[in-house]
């Protein structure tokens, strides 16, 4: 028992040391966002300031940017939850020709560097008249390959009997999906939600290219404009912006922690 205690203390110590290494940069980020300039410069008076936050929160368009970001986030996340369920279900349960190839293509979408498709994609976005609208950063991202992969694996590990029973009771395919599969998939949804949310919330390149009007900008793009000077960065504003924009994601993770772990555990990736 005693040996165990020592081991526990040792572990705790090691983890604490490691987490210090992990937390220092974030503390620095938070700390720097309240500074007028680098510490050690100037006469020391008025070093601490809320100016950076004033720049960001007081920006006329801030409410606009955050609304845009939330609209896009909600649309993309809910689309991914619904669609990856549907597609994952089809891949897990139905038999159809080219299934293997099509599924390989799902994985393929994970592999292509997105930057390379930017020019043709913009060409397409312009041609179908979506340019400079929020749809341009919603529609192409509605079905993410990773989520489809995850859902397929998760549903594949669920017992079929319940679905067959529901079918025997006369439920249609959509009915089966809604009343039998969905309740079982909650943990997997948590993973889909956090994955998509993180990716989407921080997405920068596509919103930058697809959106021209400042009123339609999303938070990361707008923040980068606020923090940039032509010859350098306003570090205070940059750090304040990073703090503000990461808060929602931290909250989401904090609330969904258990579900995320359960979602990955629930046999999702076993096979």
């Amino acid at each position: 028992m005693k040996k165990n205690n020592i081991k526990q203390t040792g572990l705790l110590l090691l983890l604490t040391v490691l987490s210090v290494g992990y937390i220092v940069p974030w503390l620095y980020m938070l700390f720097r966002s309240f500074l007028r300039h680098e510490p050690g410069m100037g006469d020391g008076s008025g070093l601490f300031t809320l100016d950076s936050y004033r720049v960001i929160l007081g920006n006329a368009g801030f409410l606009n940017y955050i609304t845009n970001s939330i609209i896009v986030l909600v649309c993309v996340v809910s689309a991914n939850v619904i669609f990856s369920l549907m597609v994952g279900y089809a891949f897990a349960r139905y038999r159809f020709p080219f299934k293997k190839i099509l599924f390989a293509l799902v994985l393929c979408t994970l592999m292509a560097p997105k930057q390379t498709l930017m020019v043709p994609l913009l060409d397409l976005i312009v041609k179908i008249g979506l340019h400079d609208s929020l749809w341009a950063i919603i529609l192409p991202f509605c079905v993410d390959g990773f989520n489809v992969f995850l859902m397929k694996q998760y549903i594949g590990a669920l017992p079929r009997e319940l679905e067959d029973a529901a079918r025997a009771d006369g439920a249609g395919e959509i009915g089966v999906l809604r009343h039998v599969v969905v309740p079982l998939c909650k943990p997997a949804f948590a993973v889909v939600i956090i994955n998509t949310a993180i990716l989407n919330w921080n997405s920068f390149l596509f919103p930058l290219i697809f959106i021209d009007t400042s009123a339609k900008r999303t938070l990361p793009v707008a923040l980068s404009m606020l923090a940039q000077g032509p010859y350098g960065t306003d570090w205070g504003v940059l750090m304040a912006g990073a703090s503000v924009s990461s808060l929602p994601m931290i909250l989401i993770f904090w609330f969904f922690q258990k579900e995320i772990i359960a979602g990955i555990t629930g046999g999702a990736l076993k096979e």
Partner: peptide
Amino acid sequence: FLAPWFITFFIFWLYPL
């Protein structure tokens, strides 16, 4: 069920590819 993926995959992925 496959339609959502089909649409996004073929339009926004395969076509640019």
